[in-house]
């Protein structure tokens, strides 16, 4: 499929040239029908140089063969059936019109040569279109800051959570935006980011931060109780008080142990639920327990 930009550029490249017809009908080079045939060839239409009648009939043939659709489009073929009366025979005239942009004709205003904007649209009597052969225009990545901003954002979202290096940006300027997004979306790190996203969603939903702070508080209380019990032990004199202090220490140790076990169990369960998160959870465990 050709894009509109490609069709424009192709037709402009033909202006001032004689459209060439291949063998065995090289003598048709430069004819108005040949001007349409070279376009058909460019568009990839089957048998572009087949004989489809003189100008007045060629539009009907293209419709009959399903190669064009009735009515004007963006890429319109215009036929006038009454022009081109030569030696008492009317052959008609055929040309190309890009809707609202330009028109191109061969052997019309200038013998055998392709000219641009020399044939008024309203001289047409039949309008058919070749839009079925036109694909979507590419959107090319520009070099301006808004393009950098947007693709830097895509980079964070699809490749890794880091700024897009300018050197990489410079390499994608001028490329088809869709193709670049497609390749980034297929990047191995993009899949990793999805997994991290899932962990993040679970952490947010289950309020891991609050759970961690709650368990940290329990641990701190247990540690404080232990310290207090140790102080009491130092100050105690009687046998009875010593026994009481020992019991307090044992209780505090048990509470601390319990809190730590709960925290470890919670983090371990989450780590086992998703191995991808282990690195992150190990970091959390280390952070909470001081690397123990």
């Amino acid at each position: 499929m050709r894009t509109r930009a490609e069709v424009r550029a192709f037709l402009d490249s033909q202006v001032g040239k004689i459209p060439q017809h291949p063998a065995p009908y090289q003598d048709l080079s430069g004819q108005c029908v040949t001007g349409v045939k070279v376009l058909l060839d460019f568009l990839g239409v089957p048998n572009p140089y087949a004989a489809r009648g003189n100008a007045k009939d060629a539009g009907d043939t293209l419709l009959r063969q399903g190669l064009a659709k009735p009515g004007p489009g963006w890429l319109t073929i215009v036929v006038n059936r009454t022009m081109g009366n030569i030696g008492g025979v009317t052959y008609g005239h055929i040309w190309i019109d890009l809707q609202g942009e330009a028109n191109y004709e061969s052997n019309g205003a200038r013998a055998l040569y392709m000219t641009k904007n020399t044939r008024p649209y309203n001289q047409g009597q039949q309008y058919i279109n070749l839009d079925q052969w036109i694909g979507e225009d590419e959107v090319k990545i520009g070099s301006s800051e808004n393009w950098y901003w947007r693709f830097n954002r895509f980079h964070h979202q699809l490749v890794r959570n880091a700024d897009l290096p300018r050197s990489v940006f410079n390499q994608i300027v001028g490329l088809d935006a869709w193709k670049v997004l497609e390749s980034w979306s297929d990047h191995p790190e993009a899949n990793q980011l999805i997994k991290w996203q899932e962990i993040g969603e679970r952490a947010d939903k289950d309020k891991w931060d609050q759970q961690i702070y709650g368990l940290q508080d329990d641990l701190n209380i247990a540690n404080a109780n232990l310290l207090k019990a140790q102080q009491q032990l130092g100050e105690s004199v009687s046998k009875e008080e010593l026994a009481k202090a020992n019991q307090a220490i044992a209780d505090a140790q048990a509470a601390a142990k319990k809190a730590r076990e709960e925290l470890d169990a919670k983090l371990k369960a989450d780590a086992e639920a998703d191995k991808v998160g282990q690195g992150f959870l190990r970091w959390l465990i280390g952070k909470i327990t001081g690397g123990k």
């Binding site: 003598d27 004989a51 043939t61 005239h93 019309g108 205003a109 200038r110 013998a111």
Partner: peptide, 30 residues
């Protein structure tokens, strides 16, 4: 140099250079 301003018909020079198409062969296509 020919006049390539808009004309109501193809130019006289174009008429002089005209070559008709061979018979349509579309019945054998598709």
């Amino acid at each position: 140099m020919e006049d390539i301003t808009r004309q109501p018909d193809i130019s006289p020079a174009a008429k002089k250079a005209f070559v008709p198409e061979p018979p349509a062969e579309d019945e054998n296509e598709n």
